[in-house]
Design a protein around this nucleic acid. Structure first.
Lengths: 139, 139
DNA sequence: TATTGTTATACTCTATAACTATA
DNA sequence: TATAGTTATAGAGTATAACAATA
């Protein structure tokens, strides 16, 4: 019974987060998946291969393809052939992509702020620890 | 920074929950949305109108239509004209629908059990309280 | 006029399977 | 034969807009 409520709450709260994030990303011309990929690329601090980024995002490479298509078309990312292995594509952040990644980061921070506004700092930390435990058991 | 990690964790954990639930629902011939609607209907303990159920699920009525279509085709739910207001459709659970709702409930309980397995009872309660606070601020 | 529900359309997120190019 | 990525296809979940029937 308690687990069921927990599952339902988790679902509702995460959907709410997605909505808040989504609205803030509209002005950037990004959807959450694109923003997440862009951010991961910025976090890496260096070009990543498709397989590597997909792994980072925990999706299959095929699912990453349209995401990167959109980012490339928007001039935020460049696909380059990996000189070390010509089967591989290196994803390179453009200067514009780097700027947009920062704005996406702000959007996510704001969405998080809004969602977790009722929680104190200590409570947020607690929540982060509990979710971290749950997530870690699969990694 | 902490909020960002929290947001990301929430996203990852809820996606994991969805996957676990999804797999357990396959044998029932349901997807999570259908199962959720069926469960809400069973929880209500009486026929509900479309608008009312949509509200309960926090989606727009239009999004509920294909869900109910599927449930009706599977013989789990019947659409009846509301005698009190002929614009309205009453959603009535069939006996088979009631049984399936129970099985869906078990599936969800198991998916929750699996996901939150690493947490103690006290930790689950804590997590439920924190998520409840977050959710309540919008209700 | 306002409400209930549906038809039509579209976008996001993700998956599997089959294929191409390269190793 | 194995790996990296793409083409093709599909299904879940959700939305907005326009419309018909009813109130």
């Amino acid at each position: 019974m308690a687990e069921m409520e927990l599952a339902e709450l988790l679902f509702l709260v995460s959907r709410r987060l997605r909505h808040g994030y989504l609205h803030r990303l509209v002005p950037l011309g990004l959807n959450p998946g694109q923003a997440r990929a862009l951010r991961a690329l910025a976090d890496a601090g260096r070009p990543l291969r498709m397989v590597r980024l997909a792994d980072e995002l925990r999706i299959v490479p095929r699912s990453l393809t349209p995401v990167v298509d959109a980012l490339e078309e928007a001039g935020l990312v460049r696909r380059e052939v990996d000189p070390a292995n010509r089967r591989s594509t290196l994803l390179v952040l453009t200067p514009e992509g780097r700027k947009t990644a920062e704005r996406a980061r702000d959007a996510r921070r704001q969405a998080g702020e809004e969602l977790f506004a009722v929680l104190s700092g200590a409570q947020r930390e607690q929540l982060g620890e509990l979710l971290g435990l749950v997530d870690a058991q699969f990694s």
